[in-house]
């Protein structure tokens, strides 16, 4: 794994990564990858994949509207709102 990969991963994860931290992060990631390699070396062919640690199935609720409008309370926490919308710095792709 090269430092370019670390930069790319940092970009994808939207994490600011100063150049001086690249080497250290790379080393830590190498250790994590070593652990992954160790895990992958195990033979799991006869083991059922576990999607969740609890041996339970998802519960469900009937299709009923139970929530009331609490916009004012939620928006009291927001840095900026206008016309009922939350405002964020301009995003256009």
């Amino acid at each position: 794994m090269s430092s370019i990969d670390v930069k790319n991963i940092a970009y994808l994860a939207r994490i600011a990564m100063p150049p001086q931290e690249l080497a250290d992060t790379e080393q830590k990631l190498q250790q994590i990858f070593a652990l992954i390699d160790h895990l992958q070396a195990q033979d799991t062919r006869n083991i059922e994949p576990m999607a969740h640690p609890l041996a339970l199935a998802q519960r469900s609720l009937p299709d009923v509207v139970t929530e009331s409008d609490q916009r004012d309370k939620f928006q009291a926490l927001a840095p900026a709102t206008e016309l009922g919308c939350y405002l964020v710095p301009i995003v256009i792709e």
């Binding site: 900026a80 919308c85 405002l87 710095p89």
Partner: peptide
């Protein structure tokens, strides 16, 4: 994107 000056509104 349209109704807000230099900002984006989220609904």
């Amino acid at each position: 994107h349209e109704a807000f000056h230099q900002m984006t509104g989220i609904d």
